[in-house]
Design a protein around this nucleic acid. Structure first.
Lengths: 216, 216
DNA sequence: TGATAATTTGACCGGTTGGTAAACATTACA
DNA sequence: TGTAATGTTTACCAACCGGTCAAATTATCA
């Protein structure tokens, strides 16, 4: 008799590995486009190229799929912030952070939208992870920024709102892509907008935080 | 026999006016919380305090409700940008714009989330309005900003990405409210975060655009 | 090979959902 | 007041959706 994945002893076969990957890829596609409630298991099954019961053999419920996906995405989503280095040069650290976040928005828009969908709906499934690991990491990096400000390396500013503003400006290009394209029009529809955005955001943040420009 | 609203001759009775308002208020509540697909007509009817068929007497379909709501919200959403004045002082214009957008995020988070939901799902119902009225307005204001830059009143920068960054940073406090609260923690849970955000964003944008020391 | 476990599928089920039919109630107004 | 238009409700339906079941198919390996 076939046991569902969670009940299996330990080793994952190559088939399991491949199929689960295939399913999560399809689930990402569908969830990011329609949200949790808007996505249907049939849709995901079709995109994954398998029958619905087959899909439910690997993930027992729609929610299990979503949970697996969200957990994975939240993790990679935080990677750029983890690389934020207290020992580094503030200017290059902040510049790199903006670059990395913008690259993620460009290369992994579905992941960004999945996350945005979840937060928008009140983050019913990941509130704990937000208040735990996420908050801890942000607290830590905020302290770094505060130290830089106290040392006069960057302008004094609220480090939390600085992080929020970097998050929002960069993710905007993934989450609000349709709007960005509509406003920029056909001529700018190519990937050039990411280069323009990078240039603008670097100017905004680096000048905005430059100690020499800082008003008393 | 009762005819649905759209087929009626012309005059809207006071009852119609009141009920439609009541319905849209409830629809806003539910749609902004669960998205279009996640919201159910029964839910909206319950929040509106009326039976489902009664609700469907005023709006024949769930989609009609959503369309009416989106159109209205898009309109008020653009109001702050409309007030952006070419004749004004760049410093105060940009500062006021940030303030107004932030106030909207604080006072009308449901509207912001409804809109965000729609864009996130690919804006299936309002793509035309984005490419038409929205783009026109942004084009117009972008030209104003460009003029200011050429006149040396503010730093040279891409006006479109400047507008995007103001949109994203301010709306972030409505759309990602759960995350913001989670990161800031209990102590900052009050409305103080909006004041802090305003202070930070003003500093960021005004300094970032090199206009903090411009005379009025 | 044969037997056992893992995988896949068509048919199906109960609950939900958007929407309808038609009878009933209320309001507007001649 | 009478009556026609407007407003409201109960009962209901067909489609959809998440998930189950049992039977069939395929992979694993002694």
């Amino acid at each position: 008799m076939a046991l569902p994945r969670a009940a299996r002893t330990q080793r994952r076969t190559r088939i399991q590995e491949a199929k689960e990957e295939q399913i999560l890829e399809a689930a990402l596609e569908v969830f990011s486009l329609h949200g949790f409630r808007g996505a249907t298991v049939d849709q995901i099954a079709e995109v994954a190229g398998m029958s619905k019961p087959n899909l439910l053999y690997y993930f027992r419920t729609k929610e299990a799929m979503h949970r697996a996906l969200i957990t994975r995405v939240l993790d990679t989503w935080l990677d750029p912030l983890r690389e934020f280095d207290a020992e580094g040069n503030p200017v290059s650290e902040i510049r790199s952070y903006i670059r990395r976040k913008l690259e993620m928005a460009r290369d992994f828009p579905r992941e960004s939208r999945l996350f945005a969908n979840e937060i928008l709906q009140g983050a019913p499934n990941i509130e704990d992870e937000l208040k735990g690991p996420l908050k801890s990491l942000v607290d830590e990096k905020a302290e770094v920024i505060r130290t830089w400000a106290k040392a006069g390396k960057i302008a004094r500013c609220d480090p939390y709102h600085l992080i929020f503003s970097i998050w929002s400006t960069t993710q905007h290009y993934a989450d609000f892509d349709v709007q960005v394209r509509a406003v920029l029009g056909q001529n700018q529809a190519g990937e050039g907008r990411f280069e323009d955005a990078a240039r603008f955001l670097e100017q905004l943040f680096l000048t905005g935080l430059n100690i020499s420009e800082q008003p008393a």
